[in-house]
Computed example of a mutant assay.
Amino acid sequence: MTVPFATSSRSTVGIEWELMLADGATGDLVPRAPEVIAALEETTAPERFTVTGELLTNTVEVTSGVGDTVETAVDDIADAIAALRTVTDPAGIELLCAGSHPFAQWFDQQVSDKTRYHTLIERTQWWGRNMMIWGIHVHIGVDDVDKVMPIVNALSAYLPHLQALSASSPFWAGDRTGYASNRALVFQQLPTAGLPWPLADWRAYESYLDDMVRTGVMADATEVRWDVRPAPRWGTVEVRACDGMSSLPELAAVAALTQALVEDFSRRLDAGEDLPVLQPWFVRENKWRAARYGLDARVIVDADGRQEPVRDHLAETIARLGTTAQELRCEPEFAGLETILSQGASYERQIAVAEASGGDLRAVVDHLIREFRAGPARRELLGG
């Protein structure tokens, strides 16, 4: 099978953000995405951003245009949020985001009326119906198809860092799970989700797709749901490992780190270097540790098995990539990584709210609604 990789400008940025729709009075999820999307369809048609549906009718996804910088893509997302609020605010619908809703139940949710979603649920059954998860997807343009799989493999060593920074699903259906990112472990139950297979080059990726399509596992490359994957249609590498971010500045920070990592790997390939990779068993262990412990995880950082606290290795990585971030013009967004490290990730803030309120998960939802509302339409928070 030949899979063409689209032409894409190097290190351009695209962002997708899955958002919950909640009742303003109860905090529970509401299945109102179809009416919200329909109300916006005409007015948003000419815009760079899009607002679309997802698997469940309690979710809308906002997507940026292709940005030369993180700031451009984030501004698109901010504009999409502002457009959404023209419909959701009068309707009493609140917007929020995290990897999971603190107390909503899967059996109360409705599946969007699309063939691809009904097919997914028919195949995956209970696990598919339990996909009450929200995430972000960050696309970074890659200028040479021969770089794609080496970059995917190298990024796998940094998935625990991105997962820990974004971890925001400590609660599931009313229970405290003990995990910083319960979403990470739920999502990988889908047949083509989870960690990428360590494929050496594009030809190996094409062979993988040929096997999967020929045996009926998937229809095409869009059904590869790896934590980091090639996106041939767009000419990008797409990072999908992150929980849904609770605020726009945090989303921007993670996008900036992703862009800087990909550009750094691209430069090293240009210089003739072989990119460092971890053994698949180390990659798998790191994912579990980041899901369980978040920013308190101790991760394996090289092929010899050396281990470091993920906070420390993140600090080293941020320092190493600082010049790259400056050259990519994402310094203000990149600086937000230090804020997450110093003030805590979303899972930590949610747990603190729950403990302060005697375990009241409605208070956690209110907290998430406040955090989301504080950021998305205010570019000054991002230094813009």
Rank of each mutant, 00 (worst) to 15 (best):
G141E: 02
G141Y: 02
V142S: 00
D143T: 00
V145M: 01
K147D: 04
K147N: 05
P150K: 02
P150F: 01
I151L: 00
V152I: 04
N153L: 01
L155E: 00
L159H: 04
P160D: 04
Q163E: 14
S166F: 11
A167Q: 10
S168M: 06
S168I: 08
S168N: 05
S168R: 04
A173F: 14
R176D: 13
T177K: 05
G178H: 08
Y179T: 07
A180W: 04
S181G: 07
F187A: 12
Q188F: 02
P191N: 07
T192N: 10
P196T: 00
P196E: 01
L199D: 02
W202I: 03
A204M: 04
A204D: 07
Y205V: 01
E206A: 04
D211L: 15
M212W: 09
V217N: 14
V217D: 13
D220Q: 04
A221K: 05
T222R: 14
E223M: 08
V224A: 08
V224R: 06
R225W: 15
R225L: 15
P232W: 03
R233E: 14
R233S: 14
W234H: 15
G235D: 01
V239L: 09
V239C: 06
D243N: 11
M245L: 15
S246P: 05
E250Y: 13
L251C: 11
T258E: 13
